[in-house]
Design a protein around this nucleic acid. Structure first.
Lengths: 120, 120
DNA sequence: TGAACATATGAACAGGTATTCACATTTGAC
DNA sequence: GTCAAATGTGAATACCTGTTCATATGTTCA
């Protein structure tokens, strides 16, 4: 959310097109939320966690061990994933098991994968 | 690329599972690239640019005008989108027209949209 | 109850990133 | 050629974000 007016010397070439499009643009907030959502995918650690959870439900310390990172770092990232409703958890004693929360996730993941494959 | 060994007191609960998964994990670099790719979607300005380009090919100053941002800011972001092979461009005189470069993009976009709709 | 373990969390720090500003580059018109 | 317009770009700045460290919370087991 960082909107500032341009510094003034803006010219428009296709004014009519722009005014047309302005009407069809979704509200700022929706596109902002969408960007926030994709931001969650935009981190190596979180992507690796998601990939791991595609394979199996896992507890925090196992994920940490698998990715060779501290439990704290993983816990922080799981918090983010939880906030985006990408993972859910269940407690079993003092162990907390995380798993995927949504069906779109794998689809989005795969489509991204496909893109970076093809562009080479 | 920020890999550091955890500080030592790591315990594993399901060692066998972890060792299994370790074998199926794609190489670091691939997941890194995937995260880099999603990172491009993780910015409001770029998402708005992409949305605009879904509707129509556009030149830089029109995009700037539509989004009420400076031409420079837009140009910088188009550079990023170009780097990710999400947009292509054609020159017509001194005007540069940008358009979408790939079919996955809309699919990914829509799936993200769907997710944030449903999670509410 | 107390000790050990699994996880969560807040503060701090470092690295990354988006915008701005000033200016370079390229093209078209005269 | 000169001027103006459209775009690109590098440096600087302010903000954001991921990890670490220290510590808190909650649970099991003796």
């Amino acid at each position: 959310m960082n909107e500032k007016s341009p510094c003034c010397d803006i010219t428009v070439i296709h004014e009519e097109l722009v005014e047309q499009l302005r009407k069809t643009m979704p509200p700022e907030e929706e596109l902002f939320n969408l960007a926030e959502f994709f931001k969650v995918f935009g981190d190596t650690t979180r992507i690796r966690i998601l990939y791991a959870l595609f394979q199996s439900e896992m507890c925090v310390c196992d994920i940490a061990h698998l990715l060779d990172m501290t439990q704290s770092a993983i816990s922080h990232q799981l918090r983010v994933l939880k906030g985006a409703k990408l993972v859910r958890y269940r407690k079993e004693g003092r162990v907390v098991y995380y798993s995927l929360d949504d069906d779109h996730i794998k689809a989005i993941f795969d489509q991204g994968y496909q893109h970076i494959q093809e562009r080479n």
